[in-house]
């Protein structure tokens, strides 16, 4: 138990912490201001005037809708693959000890631990060697590879908190392996899978480094954004797209947070 006596933080610490948090949040808030600016040619601050017309302009833009749709499709398929593979791996690692078990976690973490450019360039050169043309599936291939670890981590944490006696009890009561999975294991890990899936979706929806190598001429939303960043042509439109992306990625993170926060207890361990 931590002592609460004299637990007022020193003033310097409070100032440093608040300043740090402001540093983390003010830049994102600033984008919301810029989405309403009337200035088209520069990033002038403070904006000379405010307007909501850019939202209507973005609404009419077919290329942006196409990019969003491609991103959604890629993220959905990649998340699905990651869910299946990540859950399998987590189930195996949590239930048994076997040769090389410690290296499996390392293997899964590698795609996000090594710089993304390495994953990207190796995939592209592998596509070249095999003679695979860029397509929807080349993007999915790259994304699923680094999404697996997110699902794996979430599922593994939950598997470790789920008591093995629940599964034994189900078996003792006459359920077969599939019934046990359907009625005992799945309900227990469902919220962890949902959280992992949402984070994987957010990760894929936002990914740009690997995608630049695996997309060819296709344009996902982050690729569209990157082209605008390098050669700004339509600044106000980019501002609006930016706050759209912020909104879309915040929702799954908040939901994932609430899903994994509850149920800190180990299911079935109390008895």
């Amino acid at each position: 138990m931590r002592s609460e006596r004299g637990s007022r933080p020193p003033r310097a610490l409070t100032i440093a912490a608040v300043a740090g948090l402001l540093f983390l949040h003010v830049p994102l808030l600033l984008i919301f201001v810029y989405a309403f600016t009337t200035e088209e040619k520069s990033y002038q601050f403070p904006p000379p005037g405010f307007t909501t017309k850019w939202f209507a302009v973005v609404w009419e833009r077919q290329d942006i809708w196409d990019a969003i749709w491609l991103s959604v499709k890629v993220a959905s398929v990649a998340t699905l693959i990651a869910l299946v593979l990540g859950t399998c791996a987590a189930a195996a690692v949590s239930r048994a000890r076997f040769f090389g078990r410690d290296y499996i976690s390392l293997l899964f973490i590698l795609p996000i631990a090594l710089p993304g450019i390495i994953t990207g360039i190796s995939l592209r050169s592998a596509f070249n060697i095999v003679g695979l043309d860029f397509s929807f599936w080349t993007i999915v291939l790259g994304h699923a590879t680094f999404c697996i670890v997110v699902v794996y981590n979430n599922a593994l944490a939950r598997f470790r908190r789920t008591s093995g006696s629940l599964i034994e009890a189900s078996m003792d009561l006459g359920a077969d392996g599939f019934q046990t999975f359907r009625y005992v294991v799945l309900p227990n890990i469902a919220s962890a899978l949902l959280a992992g899936g949402m984070l994987a979706f957010a990760l894929s929806f936002d990914e740009v480094i690997v995608t630049t190598f695996t997309a060819g001429q296709q344009s996902t939303l982050p690729i569209w954004m990157l082209t605008e960043l390098i050669r700004p042509r339509q600044r106000p439109v980019t501002n609006v797209v930016a706050i759209f992306i912020v909104a879309v990625t915040f929702i799954p993170i908040l939901v994932a947070y609430y899903l994994t926060r509850e149920g800190e207890h180990t299911a079935g361990a109390g008895k």
């Binding site: 830049p27 994102l28 600033l30 984008i31 936002d206 740009v208 982050p222 954004m225 990157l226 960043l229 980019t238 930016a242 992306i245 912020v246 990625t249 915040f250 993170i253």
Partner: peptide, 9 residues
């Protein structure tokens, strides 16, 4: 939150 949006800000 989005890497590109952070860079953009």
């Amino acid at each position: 939150s989005s890497y590109l949006v952070k860079v953009y800000s």
